[in-house]
């Protein structure tokens, strides 16, 4: 993102109004076109924005979708506290389904105890969809995040295995979303498809949206591994001969502890974060997700397997 020449702006400006209104329009179409849609809530900033948009879209009625959290149980405790607070603050129903449940059922088999659980979320999500009979799941994915996402539709059909089939996507013309599903199919809906990371941050600032404290700079024990700062936690212990350091860091995304890394930062306030994001020279995922770095096509493979 080139955001060098961008300053935070108030919410009433046109660029903002245009993307906010688009997201609200999509959320209202979702409420109308599906019998039982869920809002996938990870505790991250993008899903916090969607919850906020949903509350604006339907005010004074409550958010018509339950928040669904697929818990890897490899979450930072701040994120779990934030999740519960958010549901309370917006008066939303919260459903949590845990990866441990899938492990106990034997539907998720971990290769190693300490491996990243992110790729396995897909299984638990599909089980939750089946159990609670959701016909649509609202997600916070953005097209600017990653190359594979650039071709994603706003209403995106998943087959009965939860797979995205990029070759047979429905054409999406104007703002006329086709919400019809055949048996076994499920919809993923992405209301902030057209937002950039800078848009998300500016919106969070303008609307005073709460975020987990992890997003703001704090002192944390980390170790540097091939240019990436890895937080020292019980799940990600030091390796022999490594020396930990206390660094001022913040997270740019939240996820499985074993694969989510902070960046060095002193941005403690929203204004400071905005400034940092605006000057950001590293793409969001490149900086913080070890599991995506493994391969350029990792995201697409994961999506084919049903996550998002």
């Amino acid at each position: 993102m080139n955001m060098n020449n961008v300053a935070p702006i108030p919410a009433q400006d046109l660029a903002f109004r245009s993307i906010e209104s688009e997201a609200i329009h999509i959320l209202r179409e979702t409420a109308a076109e599906f019998r039982n849609a869920a809002l996938l809530f990870s505790g991250g900033k993008d899903s916090a924005v969607i919850v906020h948009l949903a509350s604006k879209a339907f005010w004074p009625s409550p958010i018509p979708f339950p928040l669904l959290h697929i818990d890897t149980e490899h979450n930072f405790p701040e994120v779990i506290a934030f999740r519960d607070d958010t549901a309370k603050r917006y008066g939303a129903r919260l459903s949590v389904r845990s990866l441990e449940g899938s492990i106990e059922r034997g539907t998720v088999v971990l290769g190693r105890e300490d491996e990243s659980r992110n790729p396995h979320q897909a299984v638990t999500l599909l089980e939750a969809i089946e159990e609670m009979k959701f016909d649509a799941c609202i997600g916070g994915a953005r097209r600017d995040e990653e190359k594979a996402r650039a071709k994603e539709r706003v209403f995106s059909v998943r087959n009965e295995f939860g797979q995205w089939e990029p070759r047979s996507q429905r054409p999406e013309l104007w703002d006329l979303y086709n919400g019809r599903l055949s048996k076994g199919e499920n919809m993923r809906v992405f209301p902030i498809s057209n937002w950039t990371e800078a848009d998300v941050w500016r919106y969070i600032a303008a609307e005073n949206i709460h975020l987990p404290s992890l997003y703001f700079a704090h002192e944390r024990e980390v170790v540097e591994r091939s240019g990436v700062l890895v937080p020292i936690t019980p799940l990600t212990p030091l390796k022999p001969r490594e020396k930990p350091e206390m660094r001022s860091v913040r997270f740019r995304t939240v996820g499985d502890i074993t694969c989510t890394c902070p960046v060095a930062s002193t941005a403690r306030t929203m204004d400071e974060i905005l400034e940092e994001v605006i000057a950001a020279r590293v793409s969001e995922r490149g900086a913080t997700r070890l599991d995506d770095q493994a391969s350029d096509s990792a995201m697409e493979e994961r999506k084919r397997a049903g996550y998002f």
């Binding site: 080139n2 097209r143 600017d144 594979a148 650039a150 071709k151 070759r167 996507q169 498809s193 096509s297």
Partner: peptide, 20 residues
């Protein structure tokens, strides 16, 4: 973007890009 098209060396679907 997509794997499939990288294999074939052609772009096959509308992709959205953002910049300022």
């Amino acid at each position: 973007g997509l794997l499939a098209e990288r294999e074939q060396g052609i772009t096959v679907d509308v992709a959205y890009r953002y910049f300022a």
